[in-house]
Write a protein that binds this DNA or RNA. Structure first.
Lengths: 157, 157
DNA sequence: AGATTATACTTGAAGTCTAAAATATTTTTA
DNA sequence: TAAAAATATTTTAGACTTCAAGTATAATCT
């Protein structure tokens, strides 16, 4: 009498690998598309948009290190992006009273207006790109990914 | 008489946006993790790994232009990555008989060995990172993403 | 054949990204 | 309080990236 046993005991590993490769491919394609749209319509870039989006969520402003934390890009990187946004008058660096090392980065009025327009366009682009997913599917997969992100954050906080 | 109508007629748009933001976040976290692992364990990088993975799938070797095609990175970019891999003795440029412009890039014996180890580690890392997903879930979500990728490829070929 | 066009690749400029070193400024410790 | 440790940010070095221009070679046209 034989015991029923899968030929590939750890097939799950391959399935997960495939999932990752698909996810990577999809993300890159979407990113490329968004990058193109941002450049064509607003002469802007994804990193700039990301920074503005973060600042838009935190009306009181964020310190450089908090920004790089939220955006998960390196510290030194944020410097350049914020520099350029400041040049364009979209953000300002506000000194933090009592700590001369730090400064808060905040959206200017112009930055807010600019971002409002871009955010709307961005949502429309995504809605179009992801039309493949129904609202229900979107919610379901979001849930999985959220759990994944939470798990990852728990591993190396 | 009032008609029953949802307050947010295009809620799906928000759901899809959330899906994208989660996907982006998850992808970036995973990429960062992989990058770190590759650097710490193999003193290598993601682009290098990608090139070796491609060459591993095409045992007969790939021309530079084919490589840049498969990897979807620019032509000039591949030159540098292959240069460095060649310096490390992981790949060689083999002249194509009958066409002195082109050369085939192939993994060396050392490159093959190196990649075998890295690929195994890579799969294990992913299996660990994505342990949140069951094999079934992985397959299901893969399916959605695949459909998405196909749809995207159909839009701008 | 000789001139044009196309292909394969490399080079160079300009910019982005990460990780790590350097700087400046608190905060903590002995 | 002086020294050490921690924090916030910038600077730097080097890999990666694209795009445009350049070089060499091959294929095509007249």
């Amino acid at each position: 009498m034989s015991v029923t046993q899968p030929v590939h005991p750890d097939n799950a590993s391959k399935d997960r690998l495939r999932l990752w490769l698909r996810m990577l491919k999809a993300s890159r394609m979407i990113e490329t598309q968004l990058r193109e749209n941002l450049r064509a319509e607003f002469q802007s870039t994804l990193p700039r948009f990301d920074v503005m989006a973060a600042l838009s969520r935190y009306q009181d402003g964020l310190k450089m290190s908090q920004l790089s934390d939220v955006l998960r890009v390196s510290n030194g990187n944020v410097t350049g992006i914020v520099d350029r946004l400041a040049d364009d008058g979209c953000v300002v660096r506000v000194p933090v009273p009592g700590d001369r090392r730090a400064s808060l980065v905040r959206l200017t009025k112009r930055g807010h207006e600019e971002f409002a327009v871009q955010a709307k366009a961005h949502e429309d682009w995504i809605n179009d790109i992801l039309s493949e997913f129904s609202a229900n599917q979107a919610v379901t997969v979001s849930g999985h990914l959220d759990a994944l992100v939470t798990a990852l954050e728990g591993k190396a906080p």
